[in-house]
Computed example of a mutant assay.
Amino acid sequence: MSRSSGVWRIVAGREIVVKLRDRNFVISTVVTIVAIVASLAISGFLSSRPDRVEVAVLGADASVVLDAANGLTEGDDVSFSARVVADRAAVEHLVREDEVDVGLVPAEPDGWQLIGRNAENDNATTYLTAAVRQLTLERNAAAAGISLAELGRGATVTYDLLEPGAIDPGLSKIVAFVFAFLFYMASVLFGLSIAQSVVEEKQNRIVEILASAMPLRQLLIGKVAGNTVLAFIQLVLFVGAGLTGLAVTDRGAQLGQIAGAAGWFVVFFVVGFLALASLWAVAGALATRSEDLQSTSTPLTMFIMIVLFIGIFVTGTARVVASYVPITSIVAMPARLAEGTAAWWEPFVALALMGVATYGIVVLAEKIYRRSLMQTQGRLTMRQALALED
C-alpha cells in the first residue's frame, strides 16, 4: 500500500474541522433545528387546543340544543357555550361586534336559524345542525310512540379503511416536500462548499503544493468524504428534530411510518451525495477563478432543482418511475414509503441502482477532476477536460 493512500483521511478531517469552526454554519444549523422543533410543537399545541364556540342564544330551547351539541363533540376538542339574550336584535348586535362567534335563534314555524357575521362557522354548522336533528328525531319518535333506536334502525354507517397503516394524503404531501427541500438545501450548501474550496485552492496555486504531496485522487476523496459526513450529520439532526416535534402533535400515531421513510431518505441521500459531491468538485476544477464557478456549476444546480420539483410535484406512475431513477430516487422513494405505496423490497432495488450509478459517476468525475485541476489557462468544459492527457 502506498504511503499516500490514506492521505484522504487528513483532507476529510480538515474539511470537517474547518466547517465546524465556521460560526455561520454552526449557528444556522442550531437555528434550523430549533425552528423545526418549535414550529411542529406550536402546530401540535394549536391543533390540540379545544375550539370554544360562544353562541348567543334566544329562548330556553336553544340552551337544550347547545347541551346536545356538546354531547356530540366528545373527543373532537370542540365545545359550545351559551350567552342568553332577550331578543333577535341583541343576538345580531353581539355577532356583528364579534362578541360571540355565532347566534342561534328560533325560526318559524318550528326550526332554528344560525346567524354569522361574514362567514359560516364550520363547527357551529356541523354540530348544532346535528344536535337539532337529533332532538327533532327524539321528539318525533316520542310523538309516534316508538323509540329513537327503532326510528333509526338501518341508518348505521361504518367506515372501513383498506390501508389502515397509511398516513393521510395531506401529511404525506408535507413529508414529500420536506424530503425534497432537505435534499436541495444540503446538496447546494455542501456542494457549493466543495466547489468553492476547489476553485480557491486552484486560484491561489495551493493545489500545486498539495499535488506534490499527495495524489489528486486522494484530495478528491477527502473533500467528498468530509462533506458527505457533515451532510449526513446535519441531515440526521434535522430529521431527528422533525420527528421529535412530530411526536408532540396529533400525528404522533403515524410517527413509526414517517421515521422509517426518513431513515431511508438519509441512506439514499448519503449514497447519492457521493455522486453529487464529486460533480461539485468537478465544477470547481473546471473553473479557473471564483467568477467562473457560476457558469461551471449551472448544469448541476439546474439538475438539483429538477429533482426538487420532482419530489414536490410528481405523483402517480411518474413518481414510481422516479423512485428507481438514480438521484431522483433520493426524494421519490422515501416519499412513496411515507405514503405507503412502496413494497418492502423496492427501496433495496432502488438503492442498488443508485449505488451502481454513483460508482460510475464518481469514476468519471475523478478522471475529469484530475485532468482539469492543474489547468490554469482558462475555464474548461467537460469535453475539453476529458480530451486532456493525464
Rank of each mutant, 00 (worst) to 15 (best):
R83G: 04
A338D: 08
G240F: 01
L237V: 07
W8N: 01
W264K: 01
F183W: 04
S372P: 09
V266T: 04
Y159Q: 15
A89E: 15
M305N: 12
S63N: 15
W8I: 05
L182W: 08
Q257H: 06
F232S: 01
G360S: 05
G59N: 08
L114K: 06
E108L: 10
Y159T: 15
R251S: 10
L216D: 02
Y369T: 10
L46S: 11
Q234R: 13
M333C: 08
L220Y: 01
A68S: 12
A56R: 09
I33F: 08
Q294G: 14
A259G: 04
K223F: 00
G154D: 04
G44P: 14
M305V: 14
F80N: 00
Q384P: 05
M305D: 09
I115A: 02
S172I: 08
R83A: 11
V198W: 00
L364Y: 15
G360M: 03
G111D: 13
W8M: 05
Y184G: 04
V239H: 06
L243C: 00
Q254N: 10
P347L: 08
G59I: 04
V31L: 13
Q196L: 09
L210P: 04
P106I: 00
G340R: 00
T358Y: 09
T296E: 04
D67S: 13
P326Y: 02
V31Q: 07
F303K: 11
S81C: 02
F268T: 12
L161N: 10
